[in-house]
Design a protein around this nucleic acid. Structure first.
Length: 639
RNA sequence: GCCAAUGUAGCUCAGCUGGUAGAGCAGCUGAUUUGUAAUCAGCCGGCCGGGGGUUCAAGUCCCUCCAUUGGCUCCA
């Protein structure tokens, strides 16, 4: 007998060799039907693998993310089986589960697989799933595994097997489809009831752009047809929040083929929004002891040779600008740090002046690959809410903490509470990719780790994601479709002070090297506004929104009164306009609702008589009559 | 940059196997002076993304460039 401990802490005895599925059946048939996989001592595995010794057991169902992962991974196999049946001779790369569904990388050889094919594959998958095929696990030797795929002619699987250790290799078979896979999988295909293949895309084999481009097929499956419908509806909803769509509708920004790809043009509404954001940040930063500067949009090539950026990024940047005079070369600035280093350098500094915090809304230009461009979130010209802090190494941690607090504060003021912070460290295997001494790197990495702990920030850590000059902390948020974007960033840099030979005079009357922190709470105005649009669905906070109210006169007869209301509200610092078209009230309301203007003030005969306005809130409807000053207070109290 | 798809009026889209472009909304004009999500009528509007080719004839077929979309790679 063995002891099995359940998540609620109870321990029960079972026969040695019992499977999680049998245990589930002992509890209830209903549970057994829903079990997708099992956690045995913290490891997710097939529900059909016998348990041989005392263990902690969790039974995973659709409700658990582990259960979903198993389900989708098995769905990927089902898709591969369907593909193999429909397109014999194709080769397979990898086919994992992902956050929402799964994909499989396939080499179709000469066949051109298109979207038209997806329906057929979906149908085949359903047909196969209905057969209730078991997922059969087989342990195989490395040699047998290699022989199998050599015979099949699948060089991708062979390459994968070569990296595995003998004795750790398992195959899973569904129907006639055999795949190299460590599992876990569902007991059988029966729970897969609804299938949707979402799209196809190219993906390099093993993520290497020098290797073959395979066809990646993305799909998602559900245990109930209703769940699939709900998911597809959710995707539709998310599309409505897309900042590219809303940005056009609300006339915030535009792009022009003639101006160039990835070069956003801010329209009047968007400019109002952005200016307010900048004002907000300037104020916060002034309070935090920053000084504001303005530097040119270009700099001599030599500046970037000094900084090291030219060597690292020069070949795939916008190329140098040549002047009529021989030998003069300028670069559009891809970052502001070298300029700020020169500002620090322009006069000697005492330790008493440090830390010096130099801030700038610095517009920079980076030649992103054409396929990377994406609305406002990935562009070629953008404005960073940048600042560089020059401090002593003793001050580093406190400064880092202060930046963390500032970043958290401004993000929360804008309604971002769901973000993750990622600590990006050096890849310890590839130290030569980075500049700077081991000692400095370790010090900087430790400062970040300590500071995030101290403010209680939840973090993930990624090795090898650091910038070449130092470790960093990035704030990541998701867009409407769940794609993750980096917003704010804080980076420690020991390198530029060295390269620019920056120094300050210490209390010991000796020269010392300052440490530099690069930081941008929003990252860039463009990306931030893009993500903000998606989060707010275009309904911006009152303090930020370009237009807070619109006055809708019932007819032309009340235009004079409307103007009076407008002037009075403007004098109280509110922003708004009058819809003076000769249209029905219903029409004006509809148009104003669609522009997501927070308040509508309807004025007609009754309002003129009482010297009031009828207030309608966007998305909610009529909220009653108010005196004009009352409305002004009502708004101002919400700011 | 790579794989794939797309590009027709300001916007959303129609245009079958090649035969010289169509709707709704927006805009303009007129009528209506309107009370909480679309008043009615008329009119205007297109080098069918750019260039090249095949053809008697190209929005439709081919090539190429540009842009967009979904991924991959990249992201100082």
């Amino acid at each position: 007998m063995i002891n099995i401990k359940f998540p609620d802490g109870t321990v029960k005895q079972f026969e040695k060799g019992i499977t999680p599925m049998q245990i589930a059946q002992g509890i209830s048939e209903g549970l057994a039907r829903n079990v997708l996989s099992a956690g045995v001592n913290g490891k997710v595995q097939d529900a059909l693998i016998p348990i041989e010794e005392d263990a902690d057991l969790v039974l995973y169902t659709w409700k658990d993310k582990e259960g979903k992962a198993t389900y989708w991974h098995s769905s990927a196999h089902l898709m591969a089986e369907a593909l193999e049946e429909l397109y014999p001779g194709i080769k397979f790369g990898i086919g994992p589960d992902i956050e929402n569904g799964f994909y499989y990388d396939v080499d179709f050889g000469d066949y051109e697989f298109t979207k038209e094919d997806l329906k057929k594959v979906e149908k085949k998958m359903i047909e196969l799933a209905k057969k209730r095929q078991p997922y059969i696990r087989k342990e195989v030797s490395k040699q047998d595994a290699l022989d199998y795929f050599k015979k099949k002619g699948d060089e991708y699987k062979i390459e994968l097997i070569q990296d595995l250790n003998d004795g750790e290799i398992t195959f899973y078979q569904t129907g006639d489809f055999v795949d190299l896979c460590r599992g876990p999988h569902l007991p059988d295909t029966k729970p897969i009831k609804a299938v949707k293949l979402l799209n196809i895309a190219g993906a390099y084999w093993r993520g290497d752009e020098n290797r073959k481009m395979m066809t990646r097929i993305y799909g998602i499956t559900f245990p109930k047809k209703g769940d699939l419908k709900e998911y597809l509806d959710m995707l539709e909803e998310a599309k409505k929040r897309d900042h590219r769509k809303l940005g056009a509708e609300l006339e915030l920004f535009m792009f022009s083929d003639k101006v160039g790809a990835g070069l956003p043009i801010w329209l009047p509404n968007g400019t109002l929004l952005r200016k307010r954001l900048e004002e907000f940040l300037v104020k916060e930063q002034e309070e935090a002891g920053y000084v504001q500067v303005i530097t040119p949009h270009l700099g001599k090539k030599d500046l970037y040779v000094t900084s090291g950026h030219y060597e690292k990024y020069g070949h795939d940047s916008f190329q140098p600008i040549h002047t009529p005079r021989e030998g003069e070369e300028f670069l559009l600035k891809p970052m502001n740090c070298p300029h700020h280093c020169e500002i620090f350098k322009h006069k000697p500094h005492s330790y008493k002046e440090l830390p010096i915090r130099i801030a700038e809304f610095g517009t920079v230009y980076r030649y992103e690959q054409s396929g990377e461009l994406h609305g406002l979130t990935r562009v070629r010209g953008f404005t960073q809410d940048d600042a560089h802090i020059f401090c002593t190494s003793d001050q580093l941690k406190d400064e880092f903490l202060a930046v963390l607090e500032l970043t958290k504060k401004v993000l929360s003021k804008l309604g971002f509470d769901k973000y993750t912070a990622q600590i990006s460290l050096r890849d310890p295997e590839n130290k030569e990719k980075y500049i700077g001494s081991d000692e400095n790197w370790e010090k900087a990495e430790q400062a970040i780790i300590d500071a995030t702990k101290e403010v209680g920030l939840e973090t993930t850590t990624e090795l090898g994601e650091a910038a070449f000059y130092g470790p960093k902390l990035d704030f990541m948020v998701r867009d409407a479709l769940g794609r993750s974007w980096q917003l704010g960033t804080i980076q420690v840099d020991y390198n530029l002070p060295e390269r620019f030979d920056l120094e300050y005079i210490g209390a010991d009357n000796q020269k010392h090297r300052p440490v530099m922190i690069h930081r941008a709470p929003f990252g860039s105005m463009e990306r931030f506004v893009g993500v903000l649009i998606e989060h707010s669905e275009g309904k911006f906070p009152l303090w930020l929104t370009p237009e807070q109210f619109r006055i809708l006169p019932v007819s032309d007869l009340y235009l004079d009164y409307a103007n009076k209301v407008l002037n009075e509200l403007k004098s109280k610092g509110l922003r708004g306009s009058i819809d003076d078209r000769t249209e029905s009230v219903g029409r004006k309301i509809r148009d104003t609702e669609l522009k997501k203007i927070p308040y509508m003030l309807i004025v007609g005969e009754k309002e003129v008589e009482d010297d009031m306005v009828s207030v309608r809130k966007q998305g909610e409807g009529d909220i009653g009559k108010m005196k004009i000053t009352e409305f002004a207070d009502f708004i101002n109290n919400q700011l």
